[in-house]
Each structure stands twice: as C-alpha cells, then as structure tokens.
Nucleic acid binder design. Structure first.
Lengths: 135, 135
DNA sequence: GCTACAACCCGTAGCCGCTACGGGATCAAG
DNA sequence: CTTGATCCCGTAGCGGCTACGGGTTGTAGC
C-alpha cells in the first residue's frame, strides 16, 4: 500500500466523522469499498478522504443521504450539472425555510406561555394551560 | 360502556393523530390502557381524548416523549409545579433557538452558493465547490 | 337473523442516520 | 516477541412513529 494510505480510524478522524459511520457509509454504498491489507484492514487513499469530507459537509448543510448520492454523481468531473445542483440546493433552502418558520412559530408560543408565568394571580400553570388548550 | 365512550379510531381522529400512534403511545406507557369491550376492542372515555390532545400539542411544540411524560405528571391537579414546567419550557426554547441558529447559518451558506451560480464565468459549480471545500 | 363490510385486534418490521456492543483478529511500537 | 491499540464483522438499539398482514369483532341494512 502507498505511503499516503490511511486506516479507517485516521480517515474518520481526518474528516471529523465517527469511525463506525464510515463503515456505515460503505454498507449503504455512499463510500466506495476501499482496498484491504493482507490482514483484511481497510486501506484508504486521499481521494476517499476528500469524498468523506464532501459527505460530511453535505450532511452539515442538511442534505439527506439520497440527495448526497445525487450530488456526488453530479460532482463528477465532466458532468454539466450546475443547474440541477442549484435546483437541489434551492429546494433544500425552501425546506430549511419551512423548518425555521415552524420553529419560530412554536418558539413564540412557548415564550408567551413562559412570560405568562411571571405574572401572578393565575389559577393554572400557563404552560400547562397552553398544552391542554382545547383549541 | 358509557354513551360517551370512543373507539380507537374516533379517538385518534378527534385528536388529529394516527390510529397506530395511539396504540404506540399505549405500548410505551404514554397513554393509559383503556377499558375493553367484550370482544376486546379498546373503549375510551373523554379524558383520554383530552390527554391525547395534550400529547399531540406537546409534540407539535417539539417536546420529546420523556419530556411529555414529565409534563403530564406535572399537570396532575394538586401538583404545584409551575416553576418546573416553566424551566422545562425555557430549556426547550433554548434548544429551539439553537436549532434555528443552525438552520439560519446553513441557509446563508446555501443561499450564497446558489447566488454565485447566477454569475457567469466560473469553472466549477459553486454549490459543489462549497461542499467540496477543504476548509 | 343474517350478511356484508368497516373497523378493530396483535405482532412484527421498516423508516433515517447513525451509534454501540462484543468477541475475536491484526497491526505497530518497543 | 510481547503488548496494547486498532481494526474486523454482525447485530441491535435509539426516537417517534408508520405500515403490513391475517384474523376477529362491531354494526347497518335487509
């Protein structure tokens, strides 16, 4: 094996990913099966590390596994796919926006209930009342 | 059984919850096991419906199952637990805030990459470049 | 009363994206 | 050559449901 090759542990560490996660990615076909040493240990080359960083960054940005599969295919050199990638990113932004809006709505409700707690003279806990409301 | 009792289907519908979810909540001890008809069908009373709505509303606001267990215990009449409930709600608000901040960060990154797409003259797709960046 | 069919029963398996466990094999440093 | 870190593999678990399938019960109409 080449001087640059990595064990799974080093690969995982270099990409900031759990070791078991790398094996998981291999099982589901997101990472390619690497070469093995005589004893059966996985032996990775630098391009594996780059791919794993790509995957990790995509996960950080909230893409799902299937989306990442497509992004990887689209990132192959020679593929003219910028429009498709942009569309995927835009779809994803829309779903992120929706999630943010959801969270902000519920944040408002929670804040209000907690604020009501600070005012005296109520019969029931305002948070509980909010949860139990027959709206 | 009383005139007001409900089948599991009606209960689920009245609370806006999937029927299978009700049985799931019973399995994990979040909903009490109701009375049964002679034939073994579940028979719910109105207080079950209220509890199920409480659970659903709590889930909508993002509380986890264990948190809901605590909220239910704290909402029993006679329990002076407003402070604890308020603390739970405040913790939860903090985690919602963190989630929102995360999403907004990644939204910014995605938006920028997509915006870069609209400018000509680049060699690689800017979205792919962002994902592959060796940061 | 009888038939049809909706609604229910239960157990189990699957979803996503990991993470953990355990018992054994291999690798590298001293 | 020994030791101890690292790796192997398969399997099971997490949260919070959802779906499936084959069998039983409830109920409305005739």
């Amino acid at each position: 094996m080449s001087a640059r090759s990595l064990t799974i542990g080093r690969l995982a560490e270099s990409a900031g990913v759990n070791l078991e996660t790398v094996r998981y990615y291999e099982r589901i076909g997101l990472m390619p099966a690497p070469a093995r040493t005589e004893g059966g240990h996985r032996s990775y080359e630098p391009e594996h590390a780059q791919r794993l960083r790509f995957i990790r960054r995509s996960r950080e940005l909230g893409f799902g596994i299937d989306a990442i599969r497509r992004l990887i295919a689209l990132s192959e050199p020679g593929v003219q796919a910028c429009c498709e990638v942009r569309d995927m990113a835009q779809d994803h932004i829309a779903s992120v926006d929706a999630k943010i809006a959801d969270l902000e709505r519920l944040r408002t409700v929670l804040k209000q209930a907690v604020a009501d707690c600070s005012e005296g003279g109520r019969v029931r806990c305002p948070v509980i009342a909010e949860l139990g409301s027959i709206a």
